[in-house]
């Protein structure tokens, strides 16, 4: 289990972390969210000792993280970095060996990952001649080549096309299912909502929301109510308690209402007005939760 406990870090005037506490269990995947400059990258760097916190501690399975532990971690930094002149396969094998693998298993693992990511044909190409998307794939393989127990990925989805995004998501999910602790940061909230069970939202160096995505949404104090009608909406919404906000756009009406509002009878009243084209009563999206949390 990875645990960040009450981390503080400031750079001169800028506070990067202000009591950040977070944990990720083995076999779980955590989406790490937050606006730009909230402290995501700094928090991730503290895991590898790349940033030394002013106070607080980072532990793995309850113990301090030394070089032996770090060799069992995989890291994809925000700024991608590989040796441009090295061949893809040799580069991956080298990174595997730096984390303690023997030559043969490292080379075999490099090949396996290149094949998995559709780069088998390009294995002996220098990284600099690969396309941006393929370089990203090699970067992912670099974090996975030594079969780590913990995966820390800073913005792994940025700059990927939809197909590559799907592959990346699939691999992350698989790795979590295989018992790894996975934490990744992202701004693509719909995607995170799709693939993550757990999220943590950081704002101004502190975790402001943390937990199971479904529970968080259920616990939200609001619901979204959407109706699309042929006829005039009239006083349809007047019968509802706790309406916070209504937005109307032609025939589409979206209301934000208190989660305790009784909506029974609303659907039948709507149907009396005209042909119903669309009706939805939902918990707020992760995006909405996010906006609320970092307001």
């Amino acid at each position: 289990m990875l645990a960040l406990k009450d981390l503080h870090k400031r750079y001169d005037e800028v506070v990067a972390l202000a009591g950040c506490t977070l944990q990720v269990d083995r076999g779980r995947m955590l989406g790490f969210l937050g606006p730009n400059g909230a402290g995501k990258t700094t928090a991730m760097r503290t895991i590898f000792g790349l940033v030394a916190p002013d106070s607080g501690e980072v532990t793995w399975d309850g113990g301090p993280i030394g070089i032996e532990q770090k060799r069992r971690f995989g890291y994809m930094p925000e700024q991608r970095g590989l040796y441009p002149k090295m061949r893809a396969q040799e580069q991956l094998a080298y990174l595997g060996r730096l984390r303690g693998m023997d030559a043969k298993p490292a080379s075999a693992s490099a090949d396996t990952w290149l094949e998995r990511l559709g780069l088998a044909e390009r294995r002996m190409d220098r990284v600099e001649v690969l396309s941006h998307g393929n370089q990203q794939r090699v970067q992912l393989a670099a974090a996975l080549v030594h079969d780590p127990d913990l995966l820390v990925m800073d913005e792994p989805f940025s700059g990927l096309d939809p197909i590559a995004t799907e592959t990346m998501a699939e691999i992350l999910r698989e790795e979590a299912e295989r018992g790894k602790a996975v934490v990744f940061s992202s701004h693509q909230l719909d995607l995170v909502e799709d693939i993550c069970e757990e999220v943590a939202i950081i704002n101004a160096g502190q975790i402001v929301v943390e937990g199971d995505v479904r529970e968080l949404k259920d616990a939200a104090p609001i619901r979204h109510l959407e109706v699309e009608l042929d006829g005039e909406v009239g006083d349809l919404f007047d019968g509802l308690e706790g309406v916070r906000q209504i937005r109307s756009d032609d025939h589409m009406h979206t209301a934000i209402i208190d989660s305790g509002t009784d909506v029974r009878g609303f659907l039948s009243r709507a149907q009396e007005i005209g042909q119903l084209r669309h009706f939805a009563y939902t918990t707020p999206s992760l995006s909405a939760l996010f906006r609320e949390a970092v307001k």
Binding site: F48, L50, I67, K70, Y75, P77, L82, P84
Partner: peptide, 14 residues
Amino acid sequence: EKSNRVVEVLLSSV
């Protein structure tokens, strides 16, 4: 190594 940022990958385990 610094300009192409590979150093951050290296330093994560070395």
